[in-house]
Design a protein around this nucleic acid. Sequence first.
RNA 1: GGUCGGAUGGCCGAGUGGCUAGGCUCAGCUCUGCAAAAGCUGCUACAGCGGUUCGAAUCCGCUUUCGACCUCCA
Length: 497
Amino acid sequence: MSEFHIYNSYTRQKERFESLTPGHAGLYVCGPTVSGESHLGHARPYVTFDVVQRYLKHLGYRVRYVRNITDAGHFEEEGRDAVDKVNEKAKLEKLEPMEMVHKYTSMFHKGMAMFNCDEPSIEPTATGHIVEQISMIETIIEKGFAYEVNGSVYFDVPKYAAAYPYGKLSGRVLEDQLETTRELDGQEEKRNKADFALWKKAPPEHIMRWKSPWGEGFPGWHIECSAMASKYLGETFDIHGGGMDLQFPHHESEIAQSTIAHGHPPVRYWMHNNMITINGKKMGKSYNNVIKLSELFSGHHPLLAQPYHPMVVRFYILQTHYRSTLDFSNEALQGSEKAFRRLWEAYEVLQNLAHAGNADAADKDLDAKVVAWCHECADFMNDDLNTAKVIANLFEMAPVINGMKGGQVSGNALSAATFALVKDTFSTYLVDILGMQPLQVQQTDKLDKVLSLLIDIRKDAKKRKDFATSDLIRNQLAASGVLLKDEKDGSVSYTME
RNA sequence: GGUCGGAUGGCCGAGUGGCUAGGCUCAGCUCUGCAAAAGCUGCUACAGCGGUUCGAAUCCGCUUUCGACCUCCA
């Protein structure tokens, strides 16, 4: 595809992306609830939409990327008491709510940085936008689609559904929702079971509470995203992203609220990433099968055979299409680690490779293939972000690059222009768009000098056929995580684990 | 129960009518003092049963089976 196409969850088909304001693109992604540490499952949407954002920039758009921090408002409905989720956890940990929110927000930011996710342009917090949320609720009440009961405000879903396509996004029928047998808090207050809360009255023990026209309380489940998205991206904006599990009720409610408040639907393209599963089951708090990011990076978890570098995880995620489920296993992660090491090394080899300078390709067939592989990368990205195929094409070129270094492919096989195209394709796609970084930390000069010394001693030993010494140096260094490699030309390189 | 989406080689995972996806593993070879790396070669699958078609992993139907959502969830 020669233009960017996105699978729109709302229409259930691929559509050509066309931004509302030429040259600009607005992207909103549902961010984390900072009442706990992020886990592997959370990494998927943030990596996915980081690539979306990077690709839009690559296409020349100026992107405003908004990702919220939910630091209040969502409440759990366990048992009879509706409690603010943030509030409850804070009590357990004997932390001030803001203290805990800060802690997990900070951890989240560190995790995102390790994944090399670009920071959003705006990262609004729910607690910082209570005024906007109240104002939006007032508008909905004025328009007659919400009602107040006992200090709480509910959205009138059946009334909305009579005039608008409620349930279209999530493929739901309102009648089914009305038959819910589950006992929910505040159910007796609602006019209809399908109604959802816009504002909840705070019980006395609730710490997080704000004054409102309806008394002291806190915002309902979904209003924060609608209020903040419209504030920073406009009443209609281009892309709204998030996990598939948010389609209902979260995103469906967002559409309903915004449609009433603003008179039209809020989002032009809905994008939903699929879940990460573990042993075939979704990774989620309710399944008790989560692997937290810190556990993933340290390897301290019963299900982990080893630690995994954030870049390995990122690569693993991008090797699969974002709308497919991705099953976790040590075997798969280990495979990705090896694969990524090989691909990145090919990229590094490419950086240091000199081309013969010939204008015409000596191997026309190979040259044509390589050119096609490079050009296809754009088509794959344009076809609903097929990062898996982009990576596959980069792998196709790895043997060519390594072969040019090792002598299996002659230095003039490709034309100078094609060689430059390969270099550009790798840095553009692997680094800029997929956002990959090296696994190794940059060595310090001092360490480099020490290693050079050891390498020289070993070279000398090899000359004297003193293999006992040369192998001792190599093996001891390997035990310390420094791997020596004898190159074909007699030089020695090293990599660090 | 309702709605939706899957079932691809030892493993992971692309792919909506015809062309070897790719990665990892494994085996053999080349190179190498040995090793590692790299290169080459091999392993050719689409849950089952019908149907449409010159031709189906890909379209249709049925069966089996797994999962997601319907409740906070990325």
